[in-house]
Write a protein that binds this DNA or RNA. Structure first.
Lengths: 80, 80
DNA sequence: TACTCTATGTATAAATG
DNA sequence: TCATTTATACATAGAGT
């Protein structure tokens, strides 16, 4: 998208990788927020940036609670 | 998007909510996958569907390991 | 219920400030 | 670096099967 199509490969330039991370992180967070509202569901997302910084988001519940629920499920009910 | 713009409100029809969830979940998973490759980062995402089913994804590491790292961080380093 | 189609809205790569 | 612009690619709402 944008002016040219990006191949699905690690972006070699650190600068470009950080710029792309920042833009796409924001896009994903927006989509996650919309999904949680439109469908009234819990979504939790955790992202580590190229420099190791953390971003996480969870709308309805504390992220630890979502994670606890996940970890407590048997493998067969963990979906994908 | 699509033929008309959706207002950012809970979709009242259960059928439409499930259809929208399914489409958007796939879109978000694709974006998360692309981000993890392009920027070579860890991303973990957990979603509960309108009917309570779970979808989660984490590319580089087991999701439990990503979550453990998050939980172990002090609040001041947890980002967003 | 789960496809496909496609018009339309959105995200974003690269350029620019 | 960081914000804005804009051309282009992508996602998706609703319709049709």
């Amino acid at each position: 998208m944008g002016r040219s199509k990006l191949p699905l490969l690690k972006i070699e330039s650190l600068t470009n990788r950080q710029v792309t991370f920042s833009k796409r992180r924001n896009g994903i967070l927006k989509k996650v927020y919309e999904l949680s509202i439109l469908c009234d569901v819990d979504v939790a997302i955790i992202m580590f940036s190229p420099s190791g910084r953390l971003t996480h988001y969870s709308r309805k519940r504390r992220i630890e609670d979502v994670l606890s629920e996940l970890i407590s499920l048997p493998d067969s009910e963990r979906g994908l």
